[in-house]
Amino acid sequence: MKMMECPLNGPRNISEFTYGGQVQVMPDPQQCSDLEWAKYVFYEDNDLGVVREWWQHTPSSYWFIAERHNGSDVILRTYDPATLFTGRVDFQDEGSPS
C-alpha cells in the first residue's frame, strides 16, 4: 500500500490518513466581503502540479501539512502546521443570541 510520512507517527499506510483540503489563506471573516468569503470557501487552485494540503492521521487525530504532486501522487514533504501557522486566530461571535 502507498505510504505517507506522518510528522508525529512516522510512515503509515495512506488508508490511515484523511484528506482535509488545500491550505489556503483565510480572509478575516469579519472584514472581508461575501465574495471574498465565497472564493475562500468554494475555490481551490486545482491546477496540475505540487499542492500544499491538510491531512489528518486519523487514529491519532493529528493534523499536518503535506506537499504532494497531484499528477504523479508523489508526496514530497510532510510537516507540522506550526511551521506555517505561528499565530492564533480568534473567531468573534458577534451574532449569538443574548
Binding site: 502507498k2 495512506i14 499542492v51 494540503e53 499528477g71 504523479s72 501522487d73
Partner: peptide
C-alpha cells in the same frame, strides 16, 4: 477516490 488526483491510474485499495 479519497483525495484529489489528475491521474487515471486505478488503485488497489
Amino acid at each position: 477516490d479519497p483525495y484529489p488526483l489528475y491521474s487515471s491510474r486505478a488503485s488497489l485499495p
